[in-house]
Structure formats: structure tokens, C-alpha cells
Simulated scan of single mutants.
Amino acid sequence: MASSAMTVAALIFSLFSLSNSINVFPLSSHYRSIGRPSPPFPSSLIKPELLKPIISYSSEKVYYEIKYFTQTLDHFNYVPWGYETFQQRYYGESIPYGSEEIAYKNACTHGYLSSAQALADYAMLIIDLKKNSSAEDSPVVVMGGSYGGMLARWFRLKYPHVCIGALASSTPILNFADITSPYSFNNIVTEDFRGESENCYKVIKNSWRKIHETVQQPGGLEELRKSFRICPNHISKDSLTNWLERAFIYTAMTDYPVPSNFLAPLPAFPIKQMCKAVDDAGDEVFKGIYEAANIFYNYTGDSMCFNLSNNSDAHGLNGWGFQVLISKKGEAADRWHARGTQVSYNGI
């Protein structure tokens, strides 16, 4: 068979979301200085007129081999079978400098957490893989969904000499300040619930005011603790509302027609299930809201109470908050660290 350099079968390279990105590590010290231009990348543009025929119809011999890369589409969740091959640095187990403590220590080490750096990593890796596989003339198509789709589209724009095309799905490519309304994401989440049940939408909307009013009353926090089965170690109005907001937002993000386990174990059509819980509760607002949140946080029924002081970052959202803020507001990494900014995902 002819060498793989002769193939014109597309080398399909997945850029699916955070969890399915490429496992890369800090660049050599030669390229670590922030602001230093990246080294040029060799072109891999295909010149059809120079290629020999790869299929002989008369002899029915095929001079290329199609291979497939199996990747679980787990979106954000860092399950072992979803990240055993590729990750973007700073997410999952791809932590540069050996530990999170060092990687997030200051602007110099944290500054590599950006989409621009991720794209440069992809470009270097793809070129190296093709060179080591004697496939430098093989075309590459990048694919992605959600954040991975944004990377795919940006990759095609920034490195057109490395890939011949990009396929992107569910890609909010224009969702940036001064381009799209800052309320666009929350509006979509709202319409997801409103489209399922007008009453469900109204109850959730009015529940924020009811929670605020309850907090102002003597013993109000204790009433909320009991209503929402909160563990006795901590509760406040903000921690409770943030906890509820995350349940509604994440459920809207994973409102699939089949059971899933991306961010949490969920049934098929989870928004439908949430709204049914709210509607079935009638005038018992807190009961309905609790039952809805319970679908996201405790669908398996294993939790006896909910710990609002649990600051674990199972989905890498602390890094995501930093990356999004830097991308949207153009804020320098050193300013972020100087004032110790913390950004919750539901505020983005």
C-alpha cells in the first residue's frame, strides 16, 4: 500500500468541548515568554495536481486506509473514558507545571489558560502528529460542539494552512460583550422553562422574591434550610439562590431527550420533569422548587441533605470563569490575580 502521505482521506480531528480537547503541556521555555510571537507553522495545503491517483477502478485496489478515533461525547464531564486521550490544559488532569497550586499561582503561570493558547497547542500537535506519521499531505478537518465548536471555527480562521475546514455545532460564536446582549444566555434558559409550562416559569420567577422575603423574617433562614433540605453547616440567601440557579441553568444546558450523566445523573427531558414537579406542588412554592432542584442534584436519591459550602470544582468551572472573563472583557491575567477575582459560572 502507498504511504500515508499519499492519502487524501481526511484526518478527522475532534475538538469536542473542554473534556474532549487535546492533552497538551506547557511549551518549551523558548516559547514561554508572554507576548513573544508564535513560531510559523508549515503549510499543509493540498495540491491536487501533484497527487497520484489513489484508486484504481480497473484493479479495484484502494491505496488509502480509513481509521476512526472513538471519543465519548461527554461535553463537560471528565469521566475516564472521555478524557483518557485529549484535554485542554488546565482542565481535567491536564494541569501544567505539575500542580494546580503552581498553575494558578500568578499571572505568569495562569496566563496560558486562554482559547488563543489552546489553538496554538492544537496547531503544533496536529503538525507534529502528521510529520511523525508521514502524513504531512493529509488534509485535516476540525470539529466541535459548544466551546469546542468555537475553537474549531477560530482554528479554521487563524490556522487555515493547518486545516482545510471546520464543522461546528451549537456554537455561540458572537456571544461577546458589545456584540450580543449580556442577558441572551439567561433569556434562553428562561424560554426553555417557559416553553414547557407558563406556570412553571412564573413560579420560578416569583420564588426569588419569596426567598428574599423569607430571609427577612425571624427564623427565615431556618425555614429555608428545612424547605430545601440544606445541611446544617451553612446557609445564606446568596448561597441558596446560587445553588438553585445552577440547577436550572445546568439542566437547561443538558435538556436531552435521553437519560444523561454529563453534569449530573438526569432523566430524559429533565426540564419537563422539573416543571411537572413545580406544577404538581400547586401553591406550595418552596416544595415545588425543592423537588425541581432535587431532580438535578439528587436524581439518584443518594443525598440526605445538600452542602452549600462545598466549593469543589468537579467540572473545572473556576478555570472556565477565568478564561471567559479574560476573553470577554479583555482583562489582563495580572489584574485578575491582583484583586483576587472569583467568578461563578451562573454569572457569566
Rank of each mutant, 00 (worst) to 15 (best):
F155C: 14
F155E: 12
R156M: 12
R156L: 09
L157Y: 08
L157H: 09
K158S: 06
H161R: 04
V162A: 03
C163D: 12
C163L: 07
I164E: 09
G165C: 02
G165S: 07
A166S: 15
L167K: 06
S169V: 15
S169T: 15
S170W: 02
T171Y: 00
T171E: 04
P172Q: 02
I173V: 14
F176D: 03
A177S: 15
A177E: 13
T180N: 01
P182F: 04
Y183E: 11
Y183A: 13
Y183M: 08
Y183R: 13
S184V: 03
S184W: 01
F185I: 12
F185P: 01
F185Q: 02
F185Y: 15
N186K: 05
N186T: 05
N186I: 04
N187I: 04
N187Q: 13
V189H: 03
V189Q: 03
D192L: 09
D192I: 10
F193N: 03
F193P: 04
G195K: 02
G195V: 07
E196Y: 07
S197F: 05
S197L: 07
E198D: 13
K202W: 08
V203R: 14
I204A: 14
I204G: 05
W208S: 10
R209S: 10
R209W: 02
K210W: 02
I211W: 10
H212P: 01
E213A: 05
E213M: 07
Q216N: 09
Q217G: 00
P218R: 07
G219K: 06
G219Y: 04
G219V: 08
L221F: 04
E222G: 00
E223P: 00
L224H: 04
R225L: 08
S227G: 01
R229H: 15
R229M: 14
R229C: 15
I230P: 13
I230T: 03
C231I: 00
C231D: 11
P232D: 13
N233A: 11
N233L: 07
N233S: 14
H234G: 02
H234K: 11
I235R: 08
S239D: 13
L240R: 07
T241K: 11
W243S: 08
